[in-house]
Design a protein around this nucleic acid. Sequence first.
DNA 1: TTTTCACATATTGTCGACAATCGGAGTTGC
DNA 2: GCAACTCCGATTGTCGACAATATGTGAAAA
Lengths: 227, 227
Amino acid sequence: MLPYTPEQGTLADIASHRLAQSIVTGELAQGQKLNEAELAERFGMGRGPLREALRHLEGMRLVNRIPNVGARVVVLDRKTLSDLYAVREALEGMACRIAATRMTDDEIDQLRKLLDSHEKQINKQGGKVYSQKEGDLDFHYQIARGSRNQMLMDMLGSEQYQLLRMCRYRTSRNAERTGPALQQHRHIVEALAQRDGELAEMLMRRHIQGAWHSISEMITKEDEAAA
Amino acid sequence: MLPYTPEQGTLADIASHRLAQSIVTGELAQGQKLNEAELAERFGMGRGPLREALRHLEGMRLVNRIPNVGARVVVLDRKTLSDLYAVREALEGMACRIAATRMTDDEIDQLRKLLDSHEKQINKQGGKVYSQKEGDLDFHYQIARGSRNQMLMDMLGSEQYQLLRMCRYRTSRNAERTGPALQQHRHIVEALAQRDGELAEMLMRRHIQGAWHSISEMITKEDEAAA
DNA sequence: TTTTCACATATTGTCGACAATCGGAGTTGC
DNA sequence: GCAACTCCGATTGTCGACAATATGTGAAAA
């Protein structure tokens, strides 16, 4: 369903995928140096495919590369995240507006069911908070699909969602915004069901702004704790 | 000034750059197969750096790659361009709104001077229509810079502008929209000068919509001529 | 004639080794 | 004590050769 299913293609694709997963989950710390030889051996492949994977991750903005120096895991500082959420607000707002006119009734129904399953997971509170988080990305991606805009889907899916997941893992410990977020999701779906694109866009923008404020506060607390 | 200045770094960067240029200018036709060995020899390098360059171009959406099959120049069909312009409208609209609050007076003045030089070029009509086109991209990029959003600048600069340039070269023969476009540019700058972000966004969105309509008609004519 | 299969060729994927470049330890001079 | 310089180790950049896979051709069978 989601675009980041484990690929079985070339070694470069596998390496790219495993690296992305390690970066997103924090297994590889932000700013950490990525040694080609070491990673190649760990993955049981030569340096060629690994270098191609690094180029790919560079395109996805998950690593920063400097010629003749090497690659490092990207650092998600406040400014970067702020920029990310601003872009997301514009893109996902647009996705919502268009999806309101292009999604089928079936797709909207499936969106409702998705939220139902999220609600059950929240009520169970089975400790697995993060899986609900991944579900949240499912929700957003389904709306992007509803826009029928392939470029938009690619941008949100292949790049931004990875950065978002990274951010989520980083701040997942003290994540308590699941309740209000679910309510906002429901409102968005209802706006879509009524084919009210302008409202759907506005609700999505507010939803993302709210998420950013929540994240921003967490970062502030972290910074203060670190100081 | 623009992000596509000739790099002097690794061979992979050079290859990526030369390939991007060839693709954008149409020297490499849309959908054309890209043979690694042939290109490597033409550029006087091994296949390793060239493969890395292809990975990079894949990330920029200038080529489509299929594992074990090869890479092809992307095909800009109507749907792809429609998607591109829709995304651009959202992103550049956002850039305008934010730039209205963040650009310095100096930067806005430089924008005015840029438009003055464009006007002179148009009046001269020195055959070099395309150079005005590149200037148009300068205009848009300066506004993106004015937003102070690095991610937005990267997205507009490294990916979308390449596709846009490609589209421009393809349809540059019968390009006559320079006049009205310049007027719209001037209106946008005035909105920025008045720090009216909402107006600036609206004007930019209309500007891009107008450009899309113009392009769309050209494609229709081309399709009819081909049929 | 058409379809299908097998083979030959071309192209991509991968590896190991070598060259080029960078960062840091140690030294020297002020 | 501090700055700059030099050398060395480590890491990245590059190449050529080999293996794996796909594509195209031709022959054989229906």
